[in-house]
Amino acid sequence: MSIRRVPRIVAYVCLAVAGVLVLLPFYWMVMSSLKTNNDVFTIPVQWITTDPVWNNYADIWTESDMTTWLGNTVFLSALVTFLQLLTGSFAAYGFSKITFPGRDVLFLAYIGTLAVPWASYMVPQFVLMTKFELTDTIWSIVALQAFGALGVFMMKQFYESIPDELLDAARIDGMSEFGIYRRIMLPLSVPALASLALITLVNTWNDYLGPLLYLRSPDLWTIQLGLKSFIDQYNAEYALIMTGSVLSILPVVVIFLFGQRYFVEGVATTGLKG
């Protein structure tokens, strides 16, 4: 696919302008992390910090449990993402490639729960989790996030675009359904798995309300929860919060840079009908 030169330059200019606009809040976060608390919110805005306070970046490691929070967040995000990919893609295969009675109704129930705001069933769910003695353990968040309907829905839609003929051919060759899932569907759905992984990872990484309700012991806190502990009843350590937020974004950015290379045209359909 060749693009002539002029549109390409226009595209670059557009991207650059959009890029600046998109990165502005991040820039502000970085600047704020170099200020003292009472200088963060001012009229007019100080876009450039003349007298940067670098020690916020040292203080956050020594004065708070950032290391613990980071460890918990990494562990949770990795486990939840893994389970969500596994159970989601597995269930999606059942929903999209096997026909059985009641399937569509069940699927609608899945989507239906997405349409209910969490605040409205948060307390009953919390009571249930308490009965299972999961509250105030890291497993509560795993249980809460790993079986979400989102992954099932997303993988199902992706599988729909993989032609049934391919599966029928494999079935005639005597491959079991599980074999088809593992040997054909999984390798073909790498881009979808990659985007589901990125989305689940970011959602778990940045989740605040779930950990707020379920993780009470300070040694279980995630980054988002820990950063909020810089806000007490009347005051907030805004500069430290921004420092922590900047630090917490960096790993996600690295993972994203790494993960986005799976979005390469044609991966999914290599060897399919041409």
Binding site: F158, S161, P191, A192, A194, F263, E265, G266, T269, G274
Partner: peptide, 10 residues
């Protein structure tokens, strides 16, 4: 982006 990858280049 993930969806676009399913469209055969051919």
């Amino acid at each position: 982006l993930a969806g676009l990858q399913t469209i055969p280049k051919q």
